[in-house]
């Protein structure tokens, strides 16, 4: 199948101005492409820049050079240097991002958090709510918590609310940053099922999985990333 995401010559260095000017070369010349239904797993030691790469793909970090092209709607969008509103539109419709951390917003209930991606796309509230409830049940969040703000939930519950939110709508490209970390076996299994369903539905997935079982279960391909070995240096 044709690629949906093309990365070429991608580099990221962090230029820190405080407390003294320092440059961190984190990624250099990253190249890959991925097609719908594939799951590319980023592998490599800690510090190899796996999370940095995911964040670059999501537009959360600014690339130093190179290209990230994503098929968005009818055309291609170059994310490097794109206007904020184009990145936001891509995030609304094309790029999904799942981390293990939920950004808790005061007073917003678990159900509303989960429904939000669907409402942003303009889906009917009733349908969105039905799907959100189904996902929350499936991820074992007790019904009595649905109408509460997750600020007071346990870490695992917050993580599962976040996952429910992430699988609320179909994402052509889904970026997963250790979604199964610290989940118990049962819930990890459910998340792996959700990932498989997304693949089957045609999502192209780029993910980081530390747990070997999860990796084996979902990976179509591996992208080996090694520590560049560069130490921080002055500009």
């Amino acid at each position: 199948m044709d690629a949906i995401l093309e990365v070429s010559g991608l580099a990221k260095k962090f230029v820190l101005h405080q407390p003294r000017p320092t440059v961190l070369d984190v990624l250099e010349n990253v190249n890959f492409e991925i097609s719908p239904g594939e799951c590319l797993v980023l592998s490599g030691p800690s510090g190899a820049g796996k999370s940095t790469l995911l964040r670059l793909l999501y537009g959360n970090y600014l690339a130093s050079s190179g290209s990230i092209r994503v098929r968005h709607g009818q055309g291609w969008l170059e994310l490097v240097g794109a206007e904020p509103r184009r990145v936001l539109a891509a995030r609304r419709h094309t790029l999904g991002y799942v981390s293990q951390f939920l950004r808790v917003i005061p007073r917003v209930t678990a159900l509303d958090i989960v429904m939000e991606p669907a409402l942003l796309r303009g889906y009917a509230k009733k349908a969105a709510q039905a799907k959100a409830e189904a996902l929350l049940s499936r991820l074992d969040i007790p019904e009595k918590l649905w109408s509460l703000a997750p600020g007071a939930f346990s870490g695992g519950e917050q993580q599962r609310v976040n996952i429910a939110r992430s699988f609320m709508v179909f994402w052509p490209v889904l970026l997963l940053d250790e979604p199964t970390a610290s989940l118990d076996d049962k819930n990890r299994q459910i998340v792996l099922e959700l990932i498989e369903e997304a693949k089957a539905a045609g999502s192209a997935i780029v993910g980081i999985f530390h747990d070997a079982h999860a990796l084996d279960a979902v990976a179509s391909r591996l992208l080996h990333m090694k520590n560049e070995g560069d130490s921080p240096h002055a500009p």
Binding site: H72, G73, Q74, A89, H93, T94, A118, R121, G122, Y123, A127, A128, K131, M168, V169, F170, A201
Partner: peptide, 9 residues
Amino acid sequence: MDAALPADV
């Protein structure tokens, strides 16, 4: 929930 995707992008 992807039925309406291409049109509303």
